[in-house]
C-alpha cells in the first residue's frame, strides 16, 4: 500500500515538473502602423499573457489593448478612441491557435526551429483565421517564440479617419515575442 502511494506521488511530482503547458505574463507585442506622412503610430505592450503547450502545440495570447504604449500621448489617445481600437468596448485582443508542424520542434534539443502557426485572431470584436510562420529558439530549458506578420485593419472593421487619410498604415506589421 505504502509503495503504491509512493509511486503515485512520484508520478504526480514528475508530471508537475514536466508540465507541458508553459505560461508567461510578460510576452511582448509591438506593431508598426507608420506611413510616409506619419511616423508616430507604433507602439508596444510588454505585459501580454501567453501560453504554449509543448505536447499539443497549442498556443494562445491575450493582450490588454490599453497596455500599448506610444511615445506620443495624443496618438495613444486616438488609438484607444472609437475611430481606431475602441478599447473601452473591445478591451482585449487575443489569439488562439496551434503549431501545425509541431514535429519539427525538438523541445529537448537546443536549436532554432521554423514553424507554421494557424489560429484565430480576435481584434476590435472581430475574429479572423490567420496563418503565419514563427521561429522557436530552444536554449536549455528556455523557449522563445517569435513571429512577424501583418494584418489588414479593414478585415477587423478598423476604419478610422486617420487610417483613411493615410496617417495610419492599413496593413500594420506586428511583432510577437514570448519567453517561456
Amino acid at each position: 500500500m505504502k509503495k503504491t502511494i509512493l509511486s503515485m506521488a512520484l508520478l504526480l511530482t514528475i508530471g508537475l515538473l514536466y508540465a507541458q503547458k508553459k505560461t508567461t505574463t510578460s510576452a511582448t507585442i509591438s506593431f508598426d502602423a507608420t506611413t510616409a506622412i506619419d511616423a508616430l503610430p507604433k507602439a508596444e505592450n510588454k505585459t501580454v499573457i501567453a501560453s504554449l503547450d509543448t505536447k499539443s502545440g497549442k498556443l494562445a495570447f491575450e493582450s490588454t489593448v490599453k497596455s500599448f504604449t506610444f511615445s506620443n500621448p495624443k496618438i495613444q489617445e486616438h488609438f484607444n478612441n472609437k475611430g481606431w481600437m475602441n478599447s473601452d468596448q473591445y478591451p482585449i485582443a487575443s489569439f488562439t491557435g496551434e503549431i501545425s508542424n509541431l514535429s519539427v520542434v525538438k523541445f529537448n534539443k537546443d536549436g532554432v526551429y521554423n514553424v507554421i502557426v494557424n489560429g484565430e485572431l480576435t481584434l476590435h470584436g472581430v475574429t479572423k483565421k490567420v496563418e503565419t510562420t514563427a521561429i522557436f529558439t530552444i536554449s536549455g530549458k528556455a523557449i522563445n517564440a517569435a513571429a512577424n506578420f501583418s494584418i489588414k485593419l479593414d478585415d477587423y472593421d478598423v476604419k478610422g479617419g486617420a487610417i483613411l487619410a493615410g496617417k495610419v498604415s492599413k496593413e500594420p506589421t506586428i511583432l510577437v515575442s514570448a519567453d517561456f
Binding site: 501560453s51 491575450e62 497596455s67
Partner: peptide, 19 residues
C-alpha cells in the same frame, strides 16, 4: 493603470500598469 480583465489563459483576474 491600463485595465483589469479576466484571463482565459490563466483563469484569473489581472490588472496591467504601464509607464
Amino acid at each position: 493603470c491600463s485595465n483589469g480583465a479576466f484571463s482565459n489563459i490563466l483563469e484569473t483576474e489581472y490588472i496591467t500598469f504601464k509607464r
